[in-house]
Simulated scan of single mutants.
Amino acid sequence: MTQTILYARVSTSEQDLSHQRTQAEKAGFVIDKVVADHGVSGVSTRLAERTEGKRLFDMLRRGDTLVVRWVDRLGRNYDDVTDTIRTFINRGVIIRTVINDMTFDGATKDPVQKAVRDALIAFMAATAQAQAEAVKEAQRAGIEANKGDVTKYRGKKPSYSRDQFQTVIDLLSNGAGASAIAKETGLTRQTILRIRDDQPAAETALVKWGM
């Protein structure tokens, strides 16, 4: 019997994972089991080295579906993400993303369709790595510019929570407008626009405040 497993990850133990399941279910996924890692950095730890992430390699069987919010949950960089996706595909596992409902599997035998699939995987993995590196660079720049002044380094505390930030990103990825997202999250339209226009800076602010 096949199963649908949601893999979720948050980088600090204080963050709440429930919104990732909620988003998946709102997108129409029927989740049989959730495998989650708390307090694990996605940019420094490979999936196979995470406490719960490595269980996926033993749990998933041919015909099973692995659901993730986005491909960045499956690795720390371009090579890691693409290798992980191909490993699961070769085992007969179907990978689906909550954002944009992308599906990756090994069902197609047509060389052109396979080329399109692989190119899309590569593009998404490269985008995920570029975003992660932008966040790290923003953090380094902020720390370097404000050494010795913790208050200045942290800046103003974000008016949004980690869960709200993630919801905004998910809705933006699905094409929702700022006004609609503001109504959905309870945030101001100006806050939505700030997050939209500079996502790395918005996420860096959360990291600085341990959120």
Rank of each mutant, 00 (worst) to 15 (best):
S13P: 09
S173P: 00
D198G: 06
D72N: 09
D64V: 09
I192R: 02
G63N: 01
T2K: 15
Y160I: 02
L56N: 01
I99S: 15
D197C: 04
I99F: 07
I195T: 08
E144H: 12
R189Y: 00
T4M: 06
N174S: 08
F88T: 02
R69Y: 08
T97Y: 12
R194I: 00
F88P: 00
A178D: 08
A134R: 05
R117P: 07
D80F: 07
S13C: 10
F57K: 11
Q129L: 00
A176Q: 12
W70P: 04
L193G: 06
R9C: 07
V93D: 05
T151F: 08
V112N: 11
Q190M: 01
T185R: 11
S179N: 13
E144N: 07
D58R: 14
K54N: 14
L120E: 08
E203D: 11
Y78R: 08
T82D: 04
L17S: 11
L120D: 12
K147M: 09
L187Y: 04
A201E: 02
V98F: 01
D32M: 03
E14T: 12
E133P: 00
V68P: 02
V116Q: 04
E25R: 14
A122N: 13
T84G: 09
I95F: 00
T108Y: 06
R73Y: 02
A201T: 12
G106C: 06
R117G: 13
L120W: 09
L60F: 06
N90Y: 10
A36H: 04
P111I: 09
N174G: 15
Q199I: 14
V150S: 04
A27F: 02
P200I: 04
